[in-house]
Simulated assay, not measured.
Amino acid sequence: MNREFEIVKASIYGIVGNLLLVAFKMAVGFASHSIAIILDGVNNATDALSSIITIVGTKLAGRRPDRRHPFGYGRVEYLTSVVIAVIILVAGLISLRESVVKIIHPGTPSYSVLTITVIVVAILAKIFIGIMFKRFGDKTDCEALTASGVDSNYDAVLSAGTLVVAAAQNFWGL
C-alpha cells in the first residue's frame, strides 16, 4: 500500500463530495432563506479546504530527508492539523456572527419538499464521507483523515438538527 497515494485519494474524494454538498446547500439555503442550511454549506466548504490542506501536508511530509532536515519532514502532518483547527475555528466564528445577525434581523425560512430532500441527501452523504475517511484513516494511520471522518459524522448530526427544525416548521407550524 502506498500511504501517500491512499491519503491523497481519500482527500480528493472528500473534496469532490464536499464541494457538491456546498453547491446544493448554498442553492437551497438561499432559495429557502435558511441560515442553517447556508452555514452548513460554509462548513462543507471548510471541510473541502481541510482536505486540500491534508493533501499538501501529506506531500510535504513525504519528502525525503535532506541536509536541512536530516530526519525528514514527517512533522508537517502535525502542522497541517493545526492549520485545519484554525480553519474550523474561523468558520465557527463566522457562523456565530451570521447567527447573531439572523437573531437580530430574523427572516422566515421556508422548507419545501426539495429543501428537505437536499437535507436528507446531505445527511446520507456526510455519513458516507465520514465512514470513507475513517476507513482510509485507519488503513493509512493518518490522524487527519480519521479526524475528518469524525467531523463528517458530527456534520451529519448537525444536518439532522436542521431536518428536525424543518419538520417542526412544516408539520407543526413552529
Rank of each mutant, 00 (worst) to 15 (best):
M1K: 09
R3L: 00
F5D: 13
F5W: 06
I15W: 04
V16E: 05
L20W: 07
L20R: 06
L21Q: 07
V22Q: 00
F24C: 10
M26I: 14
A27T: 15
F30N: 09
F30P: 02
F30V: 08
A31L: 14
H33C: 07
S34E: 08
I38V: 15
L39V: 05
D40P: 05
G41S: 10
A45E: 04
T46H: 11
D47Y: 00
I53F: 07
R63Y: 05
P65L: 07
D66V: 07
D66C: 08
R68H: 11
H69E: 01
E77L: 08
T80E: 04
S81I: 05
A85I: 07
V86T: 12
I87G: 06
L89I: 14
A91T: 15
A91E: 13
G92Q: 01
L93M: 10
L93W: 07
S95M: 08
L96S: 11
R97Y: 15
V100P: 05
S112D: 09
L114G: 11
V118L: 06
V118T: 10
V120T: 08
A122I: 03
A122S: 15
K126H: 13
G130E: 04
M132F: 14
F133R: 07
R135M: 02
F136P: 01
F136M: 06
G137K: 03
D138T: 10
D138I: 05
K139P: 00
T140W: 02
D141E: 15
E143N: 12
A144E: 05
T146R: 13
S148C: 12
S148H: 08
G149L: 02
V150F: 09
D151W: 04
A156E: 02
A156T: 03
S159Q: 12
A160Q: 07
A160T: 13
L163N: 09
L163V: 06
V164E: 00
A167H: 13
Q169R: 13
F171R: 14
